[in-house]
């Protein structure tokens, strides 16, 4: 016994190394349970503040592009409104509620204060949190298309999984014929994602538009995802392997909107009943 202690004492560095390494690896592999311990991600008070301070300076460098994108989106939305024969309501609130079909959808604007594209699991940090009504599992979109989903929320910051994250997939469909499949990022190029489960008998062509299907209660139906860039028919399979060029440029994200579907809870409860 004593010689064991003496051995451990002499090699304490090795023992400590094994302990710390085990702790670190436990964090990696129990990722999801550690994520619930919410102080260890970029939405916490300290890192949120650091990113937000940094962004308040660095944000100026992208202002010209931001303004152009916002103006373009304004023009597009105004055109939609005029063509549908609405009168534009005067509203100075940033929170807009839109009645789509029969579920009420609310958009909250937010700013991206941190973002990555070159890891296998990419995350974005937003400068709005639970006090602005943001909760986990709400969708994140930008003027150009879908961006991600909210994962963790602190009081004034939120951490979201971007489309470029292999931990989740999106229910997407082809705009012109309605066939749907699941969209996932294969982890290589930040501009492309892969759409699977589209059966071989469907006619597709490069350039076809891919939009959200609205089956997941994260995103409303019809938000732009991207366009088909190329596809193959793998041998022995009934489904295409489709490369989708994402419409959002993840390298230049600045302003996004968080989507809240008001009926979500009701939908989820209903689905849970059906699954039982």
């Amino acid at each position: 016994m004593r010689s064991l202690f003496r051995y451990l004492l002499r090699n304490y560095a090795f023992v400590l190394f094994i302990l710390l390494e085990t702790l670190a690896l436990a964090m990696v592999f129990n990722y999801n349970s550690f994520q619930r311990a919410k102080y260890l991600n970029s939405a916490n008070f300290l890192s949120g503040n650091v990113f937000s301070m940094y962004n308040s300076v660095a944000g100026y460098f992208g202002l010209q592009r931001d303004n152009r994108e916002l103006a373009e989106e304004n023009a597009r939305l105004r055109m939609l409104l005029e063509n549908q024969g609405y009168t534009v309501p005067v509203n100075d609130s940033l929170d807009l509620a839109v009645q789509q079909g029969d579920s009420l959808i609310r958009f909250t604007t937010a700013q991206v204060i941190n973002n990555s594209v070159n890891s296998a699991f990419n995350y974005i940090t937003l400068n709005k949190g639970s006090k602005h009504g943001i909760r986990p599992d709400q969708g994140i979109i930008s003027a150009k298309g879908i961006v991600g989903v909210v994962g963790q929320v602190s009081e004034s910051y939120a951490m979201g999984l971007s489309v470029l994250n292999r931990r989740w997939s999106i229910s997407a469909k082809l705009k012109n014929n309605g066939y749907y499949g699941s969209l996932m990022w294969p982890g290589t190029d930040y501009r492309f994602a892969r759409l699977s489960e589209i059966p071989l008998h469907v006619d597709i062509a490069p350039g076809d538009t891919v939009i959200t299907s609205g089956y997941s209660s994260v995103f409303p139906e019809g938000i732009l995802v991207g366009t088909i860039s190329d596809f193959t028919r793998p041998d022995g399979e009934n489904y295409y392997s489709i490369n989708v060029l994402l419409s959002v440029d993840f390298k230049s994200l600045s302003h996004v909107e968080v989507v809240e579907i008001m009926d979500k809870q009701e939908i989820n409860e209903l689905e849970n009943i059906m699954e039982r």
Binding site: Y12, L16, L20, A24, Y39, S119
Partner: peptide, 30 residues
């Protein structure tokens, strides 16, 4: 050496918290 190992762990953890890669940097720096 214990100081070196703890410094490595906390340095890695600090980077992990900021980049949402919990544990990965810590394992490499330790």
């Amino acid at each position: 050496r214990y100081l070196l190992l703890f410094a490595g762990f906390f340095l890695g953890l600090a980077i992990d918290v900021f980049s949402n890669t919990l544990g990965m940097h810590a394992a490499a720096t330790v």
